[in-house]
């Protein structure tokens, strides 16, 4: 009976998470690419600039022409990581629920499907389009605790040098969570 009561109390106790850990920033000594990261409620979130020339080289090697891929590589692209290090359950996100803002004003950013349509219209080849699609950060995903993660590209569609905030959102056991990276800068 006592153990049943204990279990009942544990079940109704609210789950407390630490306040958002400090945002970290770094600069790659070789490329000059800048990174921003934060861990919240056991989930690690980071953005690292992909410089336009880096993106060009990557996609030209996958079969795109420079003319086809430049609209993407100059659209403020980041290598994005989300990882469930120690959240107490499955982390589920839909990238369409993430948001960006410039000086507090919300901005829209293209979905993976919208980019694929644009590149298909530009007559990119099939292998190139497959590489593009699967090199993007997933539009939706579930991460089990203990290290499920993805690394992929994310275009925010802002001009070079633009400073913005980005908020990643996910749900876990019916609760919503978010982590915001502030003062993120598009590569110049």
């Amino acid at each position: 009976m006592r153990s049943l009561l204990t279990a009942a109390v544990i079940c109704v106790l609210p789950v407390f998470y630490p306040v958002q850990a400090q945002q970290l920033q770094s600069v790659n000594d070789v490329t000059g690419a800048r990174s921003w990261s934060r861990t919240h409620a056991g989930v690690y979130f980071s953005l690292t600039q992909i410089l336009p020339e880096q993106g060009d080289a990557f996609y030209v090697n996958r079969g795109f022409s420079l003319e086809q891929i430049r609209p993407f590589t100059t659209s403020c692209v980041y290598m994005t990581v989300l990882r469930n290090d120690s959240a107490p359950g499955i982390v589920h996100f839909v990238r369409g629920n993430w948001s960006i803002s410039v000086d507090g004003e919300p901005r829209e950013f293209k979905t993976v499907d919208q980019w694929v349509k644009k590149l298909t219209a530009a007559e990119a080849g099939k292998p190139a389009l497959i590489a593009f699609r699967w090199a993007q950060f997933p539009p939706e995903q579930e991460y089990e605790p203990g290290g499920d993660w993805n690394q992929g590209m994310l275009s925010v569609g802002l001009p070079a040098g633009q400073v913005f905030d980005i908020t990643a959102r996910w749900d876990l056991r019916g609760q919503s969570f978010e982590a915001t990276l502030t003062g993120v800068e598009c590569a110049k």
Partner: peptide
């Protein structure tokens, strides 16, 4: 898998 057909069948959302 040159056409990436297994991704849907195996519910793969990222590599």
């Amino acid at each position: 898998d040159t056409d990436a057909v297994s991704m849907k069948q195996w519910k793969v959302k990222g590599l």
